[in-house]
């Protein structure tokens, strides 16, 4: 009896040991690339190409960052990224919330078709629509502005869909009660619906943020001038055509781009994870 118990315990210990080791391995697998980016950015060019590579910089230097700042007008790119991202989030919210509310609380003619269109739009990648949109933008003479990176994303099908799902879970009596109190639609939306759908809203916002901050294909196609390009396109500019790929410089540029996102995540990771997981999709 006694030996059986210890055997069982040992086995469990072994299993959890293996499991723990494997978990550590996974941690390394997922975090190490970031570590490698950070470490590389503080290396000298010579230090980055020694073989075998060193886990810590031989000589710690800020040279790479200096190069990033001297070779790029970083503020320009940063500013564009910020403007585009903020604008997209604001417009998407202003347009998406009423639409989601209407879809969730009203039955009207054409609702089914429109909802189907929203769902269909959710599945159409921008990589298919870009040719026509490019032609439209060029006819509007917008290609030297930030508008082509903002306006086409005015309505987020995903956001509308997700918010609608969240709004639908708000009990009808609350809304009815509010209506009896003579609350207007806008008031119902802002005072009742939005607070109730807070975590969905956060998910949508986060997705919009990540989506536009990180977007690469769209600005690549839709920008003709450096003054309207975002950070994602700036890193390419750090590749010197001839002088060898200077990985520390590229990683330094990369770090500047990744840092804001990482910081936000570090600050709000619990909230993000929970809203992402639990409201991500239902």
């Amino acid at each position: 009896m006694h030996s059986k118990y210890t055997g069982f315990k040992l086995r469990r210990l072994a299993v959890s040991g293996i499991s723990f080791t494997f978990k550590l391995f996974m941690l390394v697998l997922f975090l190490f690339p970031f570590y490698w980016m950070i470490v590389t950015s503080f290396k000298t060019y010579g230090g980055s190409i020694v073989f075998p590579p060193t886990l810590l910089p031989h000589t710690f230097t800020l040279e790479a960052f200096e190069q990033v700042f001297t070779r790029l007008n970083l503020w320009n790119y940063l500013k564009n990224s910020v403007i585009v991202t903020v604008a997209v989030i604001v417009i998407q919210t202003l347009i998406g919330v009423p639409a989601a509310y209407a879809f969730s609380r009203y039955s009207f003619k054409g609702r089914g078709i429109m909802l189907a269109l929203v769902m269909a739009a959710f599945m159409v990648p921008t990589q298919i629509t870009f040719i026509t949109v490019y032609i439209m933008m060029s006819k509007l003479r917008w290609l030297n502005t930030l508008l082509p990176q903002i306006v086409p994303f005015g309505a987020s099908a995903y956001g509308i869909f997700l918010l609608r799902q969240a709004f639908m879970q708000v009990p009808t009596d609350i809304i009815e009660a509010a209506r009896l109190d003579n609350a207007g639609e806008i008031k119902i939306m802002t005072r009742i619906m939005l607070p109730a759908a807070k975590s969905s809203l956060m998910t949508v916002t986060l997705f919009s943020f990540v989506g536009s901050w990180n977007s690469y294909f769209w600005p690549l196609v839709m920008s003709n001038a450096e003054k309207v390009r975002p950070l994602t396109l700036a890193i390419e500019r750090l590749k010197d055509q001839d002088a060898g790929i200077n990985w520390p410089v590229i990683m330094a540029g990369n770090m500047i781009m990744v840092l804001p996102v990482l910081l936000i995540f570090l600050l709000m990771s619990n909230k993000i994870i929970s809203s992402m997981g639990y409201r991500g999709i239902k």
């Binding site: 690339p33 970031f34 490698w36 980016m37 990540v210 901050w213 990180n214 977007s215 690469y216 994602t232 890193i235 590229i250 990683m251 990369n254 781009m257 990744v258 996102v261 990482l262 995540f265």
Partner: peptide
């Protein structure tokens, strides 16, 4: 959360 571009460079 990180841009695919950054990931790809790393």
């Amino acid at each position: 959360l990180i841009a695919m571009v950054s990931t790809a460079y790393i």
